[in-house]
């Protein structure tokens, strides 16, 4: 952990989970937003079908 704190201060792009923010913002966020969008589209189609 001490080593890690040293690395975090040296590489300011590291997020609290120990991965570069660029990886999270450039990959993980778009991926989970895609999944959220898919869920919304599916839920709306179910609601429309029920009505």
């Amino acid at each position: 952990m001490i080593e890690m704190l040293g690395l975090v201060s040296q590489y300011s792009n590291l997020s609290p989970i120990g991965i570069d923010w660029w990886i999270i913002l450039g990959g993980w966020v778009p991926g989970f937003l895609g999944l959220a969008l898919a869920f919304v589209i599916w839920a709306r189609s179910r609601r429309d079908a029920d009505e």
């Binding site: 991965i19 660029w22 990886i23 990959g27 993980w28 778009p30 991926g31 898919a38």
Partner: peptide, 15 residues
């Protein structure tokens, strides 16, 4: 872990 960026965009392509 930067390789996970490749994988996460597959979900966007599926959408």
């Amino acid at each position: 872990m930067s390789a996970t960026v490749i994988g996460m965009w597959h979900a966007v392509s599926a959408v």
